[in-house]
Amino acid sequence: MKSEHLPIIEVKDLYVNFYTYAGVVKAIDGVSFTIYRGETYCLVGETGCGKSVTAKSLTKLIRPPGRIEKGQVLYYREPGKEPIDLLGLSEEELRRIRGAEISYIFQDPSASLDPLYNIGYQISETMYDHGLISSIKEGFLKAVDILKSVLMPDPETRVKNYPHELSGGMKQRAVIGISLSNNPRLVIADEPTTALDATVQDQIMDLLKKLKKEKNLTVLLITHNMGLVADMCDRVAVMYAGRIVEEADIYELFKNPLHPYTKALLKAVPNPVKKIDKLESIPGTVPNLIYPPPGCRFHPRCQYAMEKCKSERPPEIWVSSTHRVSCWLYS
């Protein structure tokens, strides 16, 4: 944790529901966390635990049937100054922040790009709509430089290419270029390499690391990949069924996991810090978030579950200044 403890984003008690025909999906249930300037903060957890919804909620990108029910997202535009609550802003005010100060990189680059416009145009329009350039044409010149900075091969040609003319890795480079075109402060990368081949994954992660250093970015990284977590992150939050169950700095989490879910998760994937003999799967299934288990949402799968766990939500317990856990075992 670099950053002299200056926060850039503070999420407070966030609740998000999806109103589906089957019922109300309580996707995010009281999530709070802080991202500090200059760090890489990671969200990990099984599929469907709410990582993407959390990420999209930060700039209110949740679309119907989803709704942000409660919470605050405090954004510290200037270090140490008064924050603004992003959830209280108008759509136009948010638009000016999205892509310009807080930008996104999504999972599937093939789907993120509009197939009918070339790469240069899509980079240009992103700068144009934030007033960085005065014409789309000017943007094309800048786009070449941007493509260079994301190590796109042959940027002068590629700038005029359409998405279908690029490989998956090149498309993700283009998406990263778009995301960084307005020099944002915070980049939210939601599984940026999941849709790519293994070798390309490494290249893209190396690129992100390099750009983060060059541009002094803060990164919120969402991933399933514990290897990536160990490689990239400063601090990690483990999510389970719409809640953060544990948060710690990276060494602490791998060495001394406290929550039974975190322990199980670390046993289920190759551990980059501590060698483990045999990978184990976590027994049970991910809960249905329309009828989530009462009390601790993990209790039906937890081998240490007590009576209390079935009825009362565990409090947030700070076991050290950098490590918190939500579990009755530690109260």
Binding site: T59, Y104, P115, L116, T126
Partner: peptide
Amino acid sequence: SADFTEFAHARGLKKMRIYKHILRNALV
């Protein structure tokens, strides 16, 4: 509901421009 529309929102494009993207894709 396409992903590129979501990304267009995420990169802060103006409303009219997003409609342009939607319209053109829907026309195909």
